[in-house]
Amino acid sequence: MKIVVCVSLVPDSTTKIKISDDGKSIDESGVTFIINPYDEYAVEESVQLKEKKGAETYAISFGTQKHKEAIKKAFQMGIDKGILIQTESDNYDSYTVAKNLAEAIKEINPDIIFFGKQSIDFDGLTVPGMVGELLGIPSVNVVTKIEYGDNLLTLEREIEGGKEVITTSIPAVIGTQKGLNTPRYPNLKSIMASKSKPIDEKKATYSGNATNVTEMKLPESKGKGKILTEGVKSVPELVNLLRNEAKVI
């Protein structure tokens, strides 16, 4: 069996984001990057599947040189091979990402392709679906449970207020959601072992974005919170503030 997991690198959720002077991109100075947290579920699932059934595992990332860090993280968790599809600039959209990933995945011809359900930087939720489409195979996103049968997967996915159970043939693209598994912390042995795992570097073959970012804005900052200190006596004032100032009741 062959498993591909696509991984991305995103700003650490604890860093403060600044917009660059061009007003269209993120100022990366002082930002630390981590593997996209949802991708960790995808990596964990791939590694668990490998441990159960045996498989060749690949982590693929599309991006600049720094995206190697995401692949290394996947290595530490137990993925064996890596491919970086290298682009010079940071200016690409999800279509470009999907096109390049699909191209590389085709060459490997895997049985299952895992993604995190979305990347926490641009929140597009689009790449897994596009890759499925470009490869002409089924794709299912926001998956919280997988049962592996012979050539058939039974998937549970979250829908508003409930669950949906889906079966699909393989090969298939699966987007993973929190709850599917508990991503492991890499242990020191696997970190040491990961250092000798190879990353194959390829040039991106497609760069014609389908969309363009024209502007980026930070959300309006929240006003300072108010603390009422008179205990129960503060309730009338609280109600007044909620009604007339916050206008929520």
Binding site: D12, T14, T15, I34, R184, Y185, N187, L188, I191
Partner: peptide
């Protein structure tokens, strides 16, 4: 980790990203 091995440590896991460290 090597020292802890001498004391029969079962496993050593590591956190490097700020969020994991936290």
């Amino acid at each position: 980790a090597l020292i802890s091995e001498k004391y029969d440590a079962a496993d050593v896991i590591m956190a490097e990203d700020t969020s994991k460290i936290e």
